[in-house]
Amino acid sequence: MSPHRTRELAVDAMGHGDHLCLAFADDAEQRRVMTTYLLTGLERGERVLYFADQTAPDQVFDWLREAGTDPTAALDSGQLMVTTADESYLADGPFDADAMVAALHQEVTESLAAGYTGLRVSGEMSWALRDVPGAERMGEYERKVNDVFAGHAASAICQYDARRFDAATLHAFDQRHPGTVAQQPLHTSSALRLLPSLRDGRQCLRVIGDVDYYYAPMLSSALEKIMSWPGDLTVDMSALQFIDLAGVRALARTAERLPAGRRLHVVDLDPMLSEVIHIVGWDQIPSLTVTAREARP
């Protein structure tokens, strides 16, 4: 059975009430999502708060400038505020989950009273990996903060760097959000979508649709791109409708190219296709593991 999936929503489709988790494995994806999120909030007349940790505040301003927007006016008016985790989550030293939730409630009220159309917040959560008193309450905080946004003129994206958080921790935080930010597809057409996603706290490539001889090069290209991800690679085949030998060969060749110690895990593959791979002998490649999906009732 495929794992439970939280709701996935494109960043430019976010609206009031949304509280999403962004798990990213490269800086370009973080920049793409956050630039869109911040600019959309400014264009909609919302107050926008950004709590940086690994990213310097000046770098956030550069994202906006390079997208064609000078943030000076928004900064001067107070519509945009970019600060650090130490000055927000950790302003009192230890992390106080209840105090942070109360502060966000107040920010929503004050933003609306000031004439803004809502509040838009994003925070880099890597500070929680430091030896900070109260950081053990992060899971509790993520549950409580849902009430700040649900049904209110506010939204938030909590950013988790998948290169820093282990899979179990990332999965736990992901499950405490009502949804996740959908990542940019590596390929999309009427027959096939190749979508980076999150599965049990690990980055994976979801294959949705058909992979025949024509689309096998698209799969190969997507596999080439995800080789930069850290650790083992996972390809989720739970939404695959069809794959021919050219597509399976692309998976085998990618596994053979992985450095020693890394593996390509093909999961939730149709049992008949798993058997074909076994007959051909590709499951004997040391760096390739194939797991068939459970039969559906």
Rank of each mutant, 00 (worst) to 15 (best):
R31A: 12
R32P: 03
V33D: 01
V33E: 03
M34S: 10
T35V: 05
T36W: 00
L39R: 14
G41Q: 00
E43M: 05
A52W: 02
D53E: 11
A56S: 06
Q59V: 15
D62F: 01
L64Q: 02
R65V: 09
R65M: 11
G68P: 02
G68L: 08
D70W: 11
D70P: 06
D70H: 07
A74V: 04
L75F: 01
L80K: 03
V82K: 12
S88M: 13
P94V: 14
D96P: 07
A97F: 02
M100W: 13
M100H: 15
Q106W: 02
T109E: 09
T109Y: 00
E110V: 15
S111M: 04
T117N: 14
T117L: 13
T117R: 15
G118H: 09
G118W: 10
R120V: 08
R120T: 11
V121K: 07
E124A: 07
E124I: 02
S126L: 15
A128S: 15
L129F: 09
R130C: 10
R130W: 12
D131M: 10
G134V: 08
R137E: 15
E142Y: 11
K144V: 00
K144P: 00
V145R: 01
N146W: 07
V148N: 11
V148D: 08
F149V: 06
F149K: 06
A150R: 13
H152E: 12
H152L: 09
A154R: 00
S155W: 00
I157C: 08
I157W: 04
Q159K: 03
D161P: 12
F165W: 07
A168K: 10
T169L: 14
